[in-house]
Amino acid sequence: MGHSSKKKKRGGGGGGGGRSKGRAPSKDHTSQSANDDIELSEEITALCAIFQEDCKVLPGSPPQILIKIRPYSKDMGYEDLDVSALLHVRCLPGYPFKCPKLQITPENGLSESDTNKLLSLLRDQI
């Protein structure tokens, strides 16, 4: 447990709070990969909180994430649209500076061309 107390002191006080601090390229590269792992696990935790049972994490290094995606919205008359797809995210070593690999598997009511459209939209977002 000695590590965590040492790191806190080095933060320079001032409440920490700002997530942007972790984004800056750090000078000592030894802790970089540990920081990336922490950042990734925080992101995975957030994804699981958002997607809940629709999000599955496959253990490994780096982990892979499977997310079932479907139209969002209860009040816009979408619930009769039984459409869903499986988004497979593989984070590469060096994430978040390297883009994750994305793959979409259509499940209900999605055509191949819709799937490809979805994938290219996602890639634009990255």
Rank of each mutant, 00 (worst) to 15 (best):
S4C: 09
S5V: 11
K7V: 15
K9D: 02
G16H: 06
K21G: 08
G22D: 07
G22T: 01
G22N: 07
G22Y: 05
A24F: 15
P25W: 07
K27D: 11
K27I: 05
D28I: 03
A34V: 13
D37R: 08
I38M: 10
I38A: 14
L40W: 00
E42I: 12
E43S: 09
I44Y: 04
L47I: 10
A49I: 13
I50K: 06
I50P: 00
F51C: 00
Q52D: 01
Q52R: 10
D54G: 02
K56C: 07
K56Q: 14
V57S: 05
P59F: 03
P59A: 12
S61R: 12
Q64R: 15
L66Y: 10
I69K: 01
I69T: 03
R70T: 08
R70N: 11
K74F: 02
M76P: 04
E79G: 03
L81R: 07
L81F: 09
L81E: 11
D82C: 08
D82H: 13
H88I: 11
V89I: 15
R90S: 09
C91Y: 14
L92K: 09
L92H: 04
G94Q: 10
Y95S: 14
Y95P: 06
K98L: 09
K98I: 03
K101C: 07
L102P: 00
L102W: 01
Q103L: 14
E107M: 14
L110R: 14
L110K: 13
S113I: 03
K117R: 15
S120P: 06
L122N: 03
D124P: 00
I126K: 13
